[in-house]
Design a protein around this nucleic acid. Structure first.
Lengths: 235, 235
DNA sequence: CAAAACAACTTGTTAATACAAGTTAAAAAA
DNA sequence: TTTTTTAACTTGTATTAACAAGTTGTTTTG
């Protein structure tokens, strides 16, 4: 039963329209009653959809006024809940898939503790190199448990957000996470990938993102060349 | 009309009970219908309250099962809202004041844009060096506008949290902020302060924290030796 | 005894409705 | 003209009702 909920459909639609520029930054969304009429649903349903947008920081509701559109927030950086694609500004971020998603066993030892189910399911592995202005800036290595994700290896990830694919196709939502940051000297491999100058240190991030699916966490290791860009986060 | 909403009252009550230990970590909250009956409200109202708890990360709802209590996350690290004192674990963090708070003019140029009032008020400046296991790890430079803070230069900051003093003595609360992170090669001064080995890079953080007082932002520059410790954050 | 079916829970979604409260602009009064 | 009032919006809170869907323990069946 692949029934997609009404509030979710409206959420995805509005989200798409906000990003694609149908609604300008600072402008007002149609009122709740208008949305009810247009999409033939009741106000609680519309409000449920809008609540999700508020949670994403995509709109700001004001009593008596309306729902104000906030442009794809520059400031949900890598330090917050979203993935790397929303850092720096998506516009200039191109992605090169070094390793397409493949199924393999978890590395041992692994930097985070895995649940039994995660351990048993095996993992999906992928590597990406991400560019800003055609300069390599991010290199990230991702491990996900091989559950809930039928046909994931069939998707193309070129210039697409991993999180978007997880959210749209598999209803996986990021709830939170934890991360460790260090400044490190890069090894040869990293140095070559990121075109680093001699002596240039890199930012090293290890993160675990928890989702709405139990036992489904996303594990990433990120190397970031902070010579020309900085990691930006707001909270 | 200071009417407090029902859902909010239930939210505050449950929140208090979670923190005070009435509900243990991992245990289940009373079911929605039970809460309805006990507090004499309808399910949408109860769900509204529970939604707020979910947003706080205090409970985890699972369809068919119930609402699972999650312990208040210990690890509000440096990447979140608190200051450095809550990172790493306060127990091992000692503070050495290199420069007691003094009043001076703002540096020009300053890394962040200042409001007119901030600019006119002048700034309070202080430097701290912070130790973990008697090894220097943090070095932070702080600029605050010289408003709302009578007699601030009289306080001793040794082994005390700047944020705690601001909150308790001046009712200043941190609402949010933004920060930029980089991995950099340290200059001589930093290298000496943090007892860095040759070639050891440092984490460089610039942050602006906004508060409940208008025009009162806290500006910090932090250098962190990430050789033995990592910056940890959860969100 | 073991597996399957069921019943009794749980939370999730949606509907239809009502009133409260904040905002804004037009209409009325000074 | 300027100020005040009002009316028509907006979102916020709350009720009542019903069914869908996931979980768990019990009962029935093989």
């Amino acid at each position: 039963m692949e029934h997609i909920h009404q509030y979710r459909k409206l959420y995805e639609l509005l989200r798409k329209h906000i990003f694609s520029g149908v609604y300008e930054e600072g402008s007002l969304l149609p009122s709740e009653n208008e949305l009810c009429a247009v999409h033939e649903m009741t106000r609680p349903t519309v409000r449920h959809a809008l609540d999700s947008l508020v949670k994403d920081g995509l709109i700001l509701k004001m009593q008596g006024k309306g729902s104000i559109v906030r442009k794809p927030p520059q400031n949900i950086g890598i330090l917050s809940i979203s993935g790397t694609a929303s850092a720096v500004g998506v516009r200039y971020l191109k992605t090169n898939i070094l390793q397409k998603p493949i199924i393999k066993t978890w590395p041992v030892p692994f930097q985070f503790e895995l649940s039994k189910l995660e351990q048993e399911s095996g993992c999906i592995y992928m590597e990406r190199l991400r560019f800003v202005d055609d300069e390599p800036v991010f290199y990230d290595v991702n491990h996900l448990p091989n559950i809930y994700l039928p046909r994931i290896t069939k998707h193309s990830f070129e210039n697409k957000s991993l999180f978007e694919i997880l959210r749209k196709n598999y209803q996986v939502e990021i709830l939170g996470g934890e991360q460790k940051l260090k400044a490190v000297k890069p090894d040869k491999h990293i140095k070559q990938l990121l075109h680093l100058k001699a002596g240039q240190p890199v930012l090293h991030i290890e993160r675990k993102l928890t989702t709405n699916k139990e036992n489904f966490n996303i594990y990433s290791t990120i190397y970031f060349n902070s010579e020309k860009h900085a990691i930006f986060g707001s909270f």
